[in-house]
Write a protein that binds this DNA or RNA. Structure first.
Lengths: 192, 192
DNA sequence: TGGCAAGTAAACAGATCTGTTTACCTGATG
DNA sequence: CATCAGGTAAACAGATCTGTTTACTTGCCA
């Protein structure tokens, strides 16, 4: 039964999110996961490998959550673009919100580890690609440009909520996003 | 000569920025600052106190740098609002750019320490107040709303640059900021 | 000149970190 | 039944962490 591996990853994600990466020891993860240290090192060669596995797994979970939630909010691509920030608001309001795990990871490993940085870049790239796909569906001219702007708004809303300790920034970002989207659509009309 | 205190703070800021807070030991800071450990503990009761002193000092330095740079770019309040993102671009392009120290601090201490969190909130509040003051000068209706939006864009640009490892996000954020500012000014005209 | 503030270097205490090793247990399968 | 993969518990190694202590040095100034 190698569900132990998954238990370790799940536990690692929780502890890393709540306490940070350096502040979370291997012993603690093994203890909370209810797994011996030897088994942990059987599944992961090092702490870094566990961090990478945790980031990768969280990447999948989070993007799935985001896309599913947004898609359920509305069928309209326009509303879906805005819906990103409604989903963000719900996320920020959860009691287990400790900011974006990838941003936090970069903060601790911005210097050294290339693998960890790359995992964070992959995540961001794929979220941005999803936003761009929505922008394409909304028939926006230059969807990549809008996706880049909205992604920056989203990142900003995340860290602002994390620092402030409340979800207000989601609403602010949503209003700003509406202005940007409408402006992009106006531009379409003008240039058609 | 209590310039030792300042040496320690300066060194701490550099090492914390580059390597993170947990990953930077007291011994290392003392060694790099060229100061004995005992002297370090003479000036600061604990590592946390040194972190707080470093954050507070960096707060002053950074806001001074931001305001001075922006004010020098132009006399026009409109151009100054946009100039924030030009200053950001220059900042991101520097070889010692490791993201925002306060965002990184929150990432490592989002859970525990109230004092560190408060230092980060103070910083953010004061930067936002500066942006709002520029918005007031630009005679924008509801300057607080615009300042909140631009602050979120700025935060987003910072973390995006940090993850990507390049300064592109500053340009993207600037273009988005222009749309938001122009929209706010249009709204002024309509409602006058 | 005498004393004191401020510093250094280095050992120490005790905790905690990553990672390894040893000895034992348990349950499924050939 | 015997074996063996997969697990546990716990000690261990060696490094590093925060913070303290001891003993010595240096420069200022009354």
């Amino acid at each position: 039964m190698s569900e132990k591996r998954q238990d370790l990853i799940d536990t690692a994600i929780e502890l890393f999110a709540e306490h940070g990466f350096h502040a979370t020891g291997i012993d603690r993860i093994a203890e909370v996961a209810g797994v011996s240290k030897k088994t942990l090192y059987h599944h992961f060669r090092s702490k870094e490998e566990l961090i990478l596995a945790a980031l990768k797994h969280h990447d999948g979970l989070f993007r799935n959550f985001l896309m599913k939630s947004v898609d359920q909010l509305s069928d309209s691509p326009y509303e879906r673009l805005l819906g990103i920030f409604d989903v963000a608001q719900a996320w920020f309001s959860g009691k287990d919100f400790y900011g974006c795990m990838f941003i936090n990871a970069i903060g601790e490993y911005s210097h050294g580890d290339t693998a960890i940085r790359r995992a964070c870049q992959d995540f961001k790239t794929q979220v941005s690609a999803y936003v761009e796909q929505l922008a394409v569906s909304a028939q926006i001219d230059n969807p990549k440009a809008l996706a880049d702007s909205l992604s920056i708004l989203l990142e900003g809303a995340i860290v602002t909520a994390q620092v402030a300790g409340n979800a207000e920034s989601a609403g602010t970002a949503k209003r700003a996003a509406k202005v940007l989207i409408d402006s992009a659509l106006d531009h379409n009309v003008e240039t058609v």
